[in-house]
Amino acid sequence: MYELIIAGFGGQGVLFSGKVIAHAGMDIGKNVSWLPSYGPEMRGGTANCQIIISDEPIGSPIVTRPDILIVMNKPSLDKFEDSVKPGGTIIVDSIYIEDKVKRDDVNVVYIPAKQIAADNGDDRLGNMVMTGKLIEIMKEIPLKDIEQSMRDNISKSKADLADFNIKMLESGYNFKG
């Protein structure tokens, strides 16, 4: 079983990233749940979603001790750093977050995701770079299934960005920090 939290500012695509992962998990036959934060904290503050991927039926959909945490802003790192399981992983967008992770009992990956996306022409797709890295670390869902899930879930108005999203997923997946 994997428990994930993806967190950042509202508008960075953290909920979409989570949906792509959960949907791909469902497609390969896993039990999945996706629980978003909702309400006023989405505006300007942190948005997050909690995802569980499991071979067993899922009990509590609430993730209190994530195996992997993606953080795309400082308030999210502050809020969730302590919750990660010892031996788990924190993936940090090092452009949005200059600080280092304080804990020494977790793996930390710093990725300049916003920069990688910007260098490719659209800095809004840092979420896909981060998602690609998470998929590589988790080793639970093949990248091709994530790519299919992304194509299935992207809104019609953004369908022209599908190939670009996939390129960003792959650059995150192949990133060596």
Binding site: K19, A22, N31, L35, P36, Y38, I62
Partner: peptide, 10 residues
Amino acid sequence: DGMLGQMMEP
């Protein structure tokens, strides 16, 4: 409850 309304499952 709000959780059930907002969460996604297959």
